[in-house]
Design a binder for these strands. Structure first.
Lengths: 128, 128, 128, 128
DNA sequence: GTGGTCTAGACCACG
DNA sequence: GTGGTCTAGACCACC
């Protein structure tokens, strides 16, 4: 998968990398059980420091998206489960997003259509 | 409207404040044309620095949510319009959110139901 | 409070530091609401790197022992609560410890006496 | 006895294995004088490297939990005795555990009750 | 081979 | 002032 980072962005690199990997999993480019590049390899590919990659991997591990095996490195978790914290985060993020959209003139129908469109962009690579 | 900030959160205070105000507008607690507290008043009420409030107001202005009149202070914009930048931000934020949800096992139906539910929580206070 | 680290130990410095701080709180040397040294100060005092201290503080924050305020730095949490994860960790650690003690010939009475003695060593500095 | 290891845990495999064996002895599943599987057999059963098992056995030997006879392999020590090092380790581990528990709101009574409960879970399999 | 830890020092974001 | 991020490069622990 292709990683594109913007080092001049105000979003920390480790967050950008985290998001890109989550998107990769969401799009099905990274399948459950599939290995991620080693910390060193990813650092080299992305042109960043190993500690930055390490931090990203630790976060993804904490969030349950990946597991890290001492022997073979990191791989996408096989069984993902939505925990309560994540559910709350999802709802509050979505609430903010919908408030912004609504203020900017989108009604419910528009928003749901947008959701459909975004989902369609995710779908072709995997079965949901 | 009530502002609740968590100074020991990792989310910067000015972002929390910005989000709370956007939510307030989205919920109809702050109506178009309605005045916001002065920078000093808001700072006093929320127990934060005036610079922080000032930063928040500038951001809200840049995003088009409020207008700032030298004489009468800040007020909620009367005509909000979705510009291209905002549309892109919305779509990319939504994509990430849906990717996370999908990886954690939510399917499209679940997500759309969640959207309906969140919208219902926003609606009673205003007409969309 | 006095921090003593053993850089030649196999226990990572950030873990040693974490343990010392938890002990300090447990002994009442650090009271709820009391400030911890800044990251830089602690690093200087302990003769270690700021990032190492930062890591320790992040862990203590995650574990709920301290809170980090953007404005004034880190301080001991005022309301500590035992969550489920911690309860499980406590029980499994204790199980291992008691198994070891039992194999080495301690019976229940001996162990409970040891507990009393250790608690007495913690107590004089605070009210439990 | 059943050994369950988590290769994606942050706890080294040799430590996990060591703990499981100590627990097995503590619970009476492994009795004094009883043989442990050979290094190769254990490695095969647990799906890990022989070097890892070997390291675990050496540690258990150093700690006095097992003895290793060149001819008959490893077996649980017949006479366990608490040496000074172990006593110190036990006390310092227990101190940390009690500090954590105390900070999280457990008082002495709660802790002693927990000890009783944990001991009861160990007891049925052996005479203490 | 893998990830984990640590350092020294720089720079940025926040309030 | 505070903490947060990032780097380059070293060394260690684990398997």
């Amino acid at each position: 998968m292709i990683i594109s980072l913007d080092t001049s962005s105000s979003i920390p690199i480790y967050v950008q990398l985290r998001n890109q990997i989550v998107l990769g999993i969401g799009r099905g480019e990274l399948k459950p059980g599939e290995s991620l590049p080693t910390v060193r390899q990813m650092a080299k590919d992305a042109g960043i420091n190993t500690m930055t990659v390490n931090k990203t991997y630790q976060i993804l591990k904490t969030e349950g998206f990946i597991e890290i095996d001492r022997r073979s490195g990191a791989f996408v978790s096989k069984s993902q489960r939505m925990d309560k914290d994540f559910e709350e985060k999802l709802e509050s993020d979505l609430t903010l997003l919908m408030a912004e959209a609504s203020v900017k003139g989108m009604d419910k129908e528009d928003f749901l259509k947008l959701c459909e469109r975004v989902f369609a962009g995710l779908e072709p690579c995997q079965e949901l």
